[in-house]
Simulated scan of single mutants.
Amino acid sequence: MSITALAPPETAEEGTARQRAARARRRTLRLFGLLAAAAALGVVVVLSVAVGAREIPFTTAWSLLWRHDGSDAAVIVHDYRIPRTLLGVLVGVSLGLAGALMQALTRNPLADPGLLGVNMGASTGVVAAIAFLGLSTVTGYVWCALLGAAAASVLVYLLGSAGPGAATPERLVLAGAAMTAVLFSFNTAVLLLNPRAFDRFRFWNIGSLAGRYTDVLLPVLPFAAAGTLLALALMRPLNALAMGDQLGRALGARVGLVRGLGVGAVVLLCGAATAAAGPIGFVGLAVPHVARFVAGPDQRWVLPYSMLLAPVLLLGSDVAGRALAAPGELQVGIVTAFLGAPVFIALCRRRRVAAP
């Protein structure tokens, strides 16, 4: 007879204690992971300030972070690179949270912030600003892009909730696809008939942090901050929603309210990011998958991980674009597309993700 067979059976108290210890270990590992993500963000922030078309020694850039001595290097660091870096953090946080929210609300792991027509609505606002209002500055584009994103998302939600029943994830996705197709056709028609508007629009449409300074950061900051607070307030209800609408209601979640507030947070976050930097793809798609791989499906961890890892990816791509193409630079939208396309293909090939 084996020694294992002679061992006394585990009591209920011992089993509960083991489960508590396992939960404590998982919580500790997740906290260390968050600290590691925050440290990585700090590293890419410093690199973003130190690396650029104008070569500035790292020690000089580091010292200029804390003082402005009036030199050319200090002007570059304080007037150009620091605002650009702060905007990159804001855009990254917004896209990461918006992507995690979209995937949680639609229960679709391939969803991204453009699924509700937010990106296309922002693009339509910029097209209208250029073609009909004659605006030519990024600051002017920001407000029109925000209005376009908000209007498109409201229309998508109204279409998705029209008729019998509530605004289910499937209906929202279909409404978003229809709205995106309509707005894309409108934008194409306007730009083809107005070559000057096309020339101005294509620079915004690439997705870039270049040329976006404090005058762009400040207008979008309140919208991004409001969206971030709203998203973090929905962490616990989103866990109930992930089990389905009926079970979510049984657990006490107000499904319609949670979904409506979630859509509002996506509008604020993605609208602010797209208005400031243009449409940047794959950040909101790929980062939540990394967050779930590290922290599991609990939205109380997925959202904080996403808001830290997304700016790491975005600023890292921006630094890579500046370093690889020096003395010029590659727009961050091109770099994230280059990095994100293989991730998207891999996700589509995974049977358990791609299957309905």
Rank of each mutant, 00 (worst) to 15 (best):
A162K: 02
Q103V: 03
A145C: 11
G99T: 03
G160M: 01
V182M: 12
G176Q: 04
T124Q: 08
P109V: 10
G176F: 04
L155H: 00
V182G: 07
L105C: 08
A149F: 05
N108K: 11
A131H: 09
A104S: 14
Y141C: 01
V154P: 02
D112W: 09
T106V: 03
Q103S: 10
L135F: 14
P109A: 02
V138S: 15
A175Y: 00
R107G: 09
F132G: 07
L135Y: 10
L146P: 05
L159S: 09
V126P: 14
G134H: 12
A131I: 15
L97Q: 11
L155D: 01
V156H: 00
T106Q: 05
S94A: 15
G96M: 13
L115F: 14
M120P: 11
S123Y: 01
S94D: 00
V138F: 14
S94M: 07
P164K: 15
C144Y: 12
L158V: 06
R171K: 14
V182C: 12
S94L: 07
A122D: 13
A178T: 06
A131G: 02
M102F: 02
A145F: 08
A104C: 03
V126L: 12
L146E: 05
A122Y: 05
L101I: 05
T168Y: 08
A177W: 03
E170F: 13
A175P: 00
G125D: 15
A166Y: 06
A104D: 09
T180Y: 08
G148S: 12
G96T: 02
A98E: 03
A128N: 01
G165V: 03
A181I: 06
T168F: 00
G160E: 01
G125F: 10
G96P: 05
Y157C: 09
V173F: 01
A129R: 12
G163V: 03
G163S: 03
G140T: 04
A98C: 06
L135M: 10
